[in-house]
Amino acid sequence: MKTLSTCEKGDKLKVIKLNAKSELKQRLISFGIMKESIIEVLEYAPGKSTIEVKVGKMRIALRAQEADMIEVEAL
C-alpha cells in the first residue's frame, strides 16, 4: 500500500482508496479527491507537515495525517 504522503514532488498518481472517516472523506470528495481521480504532488512544506497537490485545476494543501489516509498508485 502506497499513501499520498510517501510520494515524491512531481509524482502523478491515481487514487485507489480513501481510508478517512465519514466527515473527512466527504471533505476530500468535495475537493475532487475520490477513487480513480488523478493527483499531482506539487510541493511539501518544510518537515513534510503539509503537502500541496493538484486535482484537476484545483490546488489543495493537505495535512500529512490526511495524506496518509489516501492510498494511491503511480500512473
Score class of each variant (00 low, 15 high):
26 Q>D: 11
48 K>D: 11
66 E>H: 13
42 L>P: 06
64 A>K: 15
59 R>S: 11
22 S>Q: 08
7 C>M: 13
13 L>G: 04
15 V>T: 09
58 M>N: 12
7 C>V: 00
71 E>K: 14
57 K>H: 13
34 M>N: 09
32 G>V: 05
15 V>F: 09
19 N>L: 10
55 V>W: 08
74 A>C: 03
54 K>I: 04
54 K>E: 06
65 Q>M: 04
23 E>Q: 06
48 K>T: 08
44 Y>M: 00
16 I>W: 01
60 I>E: 06
1 M>D: 11
19 N>G: 05
68 D>R: 10
29 I>S: 07
31 F>T: 02
64 A>W: 05
64 A>R: 15
74 A>F: 13
19 N>C: 08
62 L>Y: 07
29 I>Q: 08
13 L>E: 07
51 I>A: 02
20 A>V: 13
47 G>L: 09
74 A>H: 11
56 G>H: 07
5 S>Y: 08
22 S>A: 10
59 R>G: 03
69 M>N: 11
47 G>V: 03
24 L>D: 10
62 L>I: 03
66 E>F: 10
9 K>N: 01
75 L>D: 03
6 T>Q: 14
41 V>E: 00
2 K>L: 14
61 A>S: 14
18 L>W: 06
3 T>W: 03
38 I>E: 13
44 Y>T: 05
22 S>K: 12
38 I>H: 07
22 S>I: 04
20 A>D: 01
39 I>V: 14
18 L>I: 15
31 F>K: 02
32 G>M: 06
